[in-house]
Amino acid sequence: MFSPRACEGDTNPVLIPFLLAAAAAAAAPPAAMRLDYFHTGDAREERFALDAVVREGPWPGPPDRRLDDTGLGRYQFEVRDAKSGEPLYSRGFASIYGEWETTPEARDRARGFQESVRFPEPEALVTVTIKKRDARGVFQPAWSVTVDPAGPAVDRRPPPAIKVWAVMKNGEPADKVDLLLLGDGYTVAEMDKWHRDAKRLADTLFAVSPFREHRARFNVWAADTPSEESGVSRPSDGVYRRTALGTTYDAFGSERY
C-alpha cells in the first residue's frame, strides 16, 4: 500500500528504481527490421518479389531523423502505418539494378538481383513501398508489400556469430554516419592482413576531401568473414575462388567492376 511517509525527504527508494527502469525502457531503441526482396526485369520492365522479413538487433540510426528530406537516389522506399497511412520511415537509395538496366545485356534478357531495405521495427502492420523516379525525376510507386512485425513469417533467429570491430569510432552510431567494411577472399590465416588492409583503407579515405574535413562525423567498422580460399574471382582471367561473400570482378562484363 502506498504511504505518504514514503514521499518524505529527498528520495523515495521504492519509486526511484521504478522511474529509472521506465526511463531506460523508453530510451531503448527499437529492433531493426530488414526486408529482403528480388528485383528482376529487363530494359523494358521491372518486377519485385518478396523474399524474407528479418528482425535484427537494435536499430542504430538516429531516432529523430526517420524521414528522408534529401531527395537523393534513383529509388526511394517508404514505410507507412497500414491503418492511418502515417509515414514512419523513408530513405532514398541507389540500386545496382538501376545501372544494369542501362547495359546492352538488359535489352536481350531479364536478370534478377537480391536487394534489402532496413527500417526501425514498427509497432503494427505497415506498408513498405519502393518508388522509382520517372522521366521527370519524380518518385512514383513501383511496388508495395504489407509487413506484419508480429507475423509468424518474420525470421527472428539470432544473427550469425560474426566478429565486428571498430576501425575508427568517433561516437555512438545514432549520432554518426556508420560505414561497414567487408573483406572477401581473406582466409583465417590472413585475418591480420585483413585488419591492416581495413585500417589502411579507412586512413586513405579520410585523408582526402570531403571526408578529411568531416572525419569526426563518421564511424568505420569492419566484419571478419574468413574465406575457404584466398583471393576473389576474376572470370575474365579464368580465376575462380570459393569465398565467404562470393565477390567477383567483371560485373556486367566490365573491367570497371
Rank of each mutant, 00 (worst) to 15 (best):
V154T: 09
H195W: 14
V126L: 02
G112C: 05
A198V: 06
Y257S: 08
D192Y: 11
T248E: 04
R109W: 04
T40M: 13
R109M: 12
D36C: 10
E172M: 10
P4G: 06
S90E: 01
F77M: 05
A142M: 11
T102L: 13
V188F: 15
G185W: 04
G246D: 00
F119R: 11
R91F: 00
V188M: 13
Y89T: 06
S230K: 07
E8S: 13
D250H: 08
D134E: 01
V147T: 11
V14A: 09
Y240W: 15
A6L: 11
D148V: 15
L125M: 11
P122H: 04
P210D: 01
G238N: 02
D148L: 13
S236I: 10
V239P: 02
V117S: 03
G185T: 15
V54F: 01
P120M: 13
P87G: 02
A28C: 08
L20M: 11
A202E: 02
I162M: 08
W59C: 11
G253W: 01
R111F: 10
A94R: 14
A110E: 15
V208W: 01
G98F: 00
Y75T: 09
T127S: 09
A82R: 14
E101A: 07
K176N: 00
A216K: 14
D175P: 05
T146M: 09
G231H: 10
T11C: 10
A21T: 13
D197P: 05
T70F: 02
D237K: 15
V208G: 03
T204Q: 12
A223Q: 06
V220E: 00
M191G: 07
P160E: 12
R44K: 13
V128N: 07
K132D: 03
P17C: 01
V126K: 02
L205K: 01
Y240N: 07
L67P: 03
L19D: 04
L19N: 11
A94W: 04
Y97P: 06
L181W: 00
G57W: 07
P149S: 01
A124W: 04
E229V: 08
Y75F: 15
E105G: 12
V126D: 00
D224Y: 01
E101P: 05
W100D: 04
E105D: 14
D36H: 13
K176E: 00
P235I: 08
F93G: 06
L125R: 13
K131T: 07
F139T: 04
A174E: 08
R66F: 07
V220N: 00
F2I: 08
D148Y: 14
S230F: 03
F2E: 07
E121I: 12
G9V: 12
A52G: 05
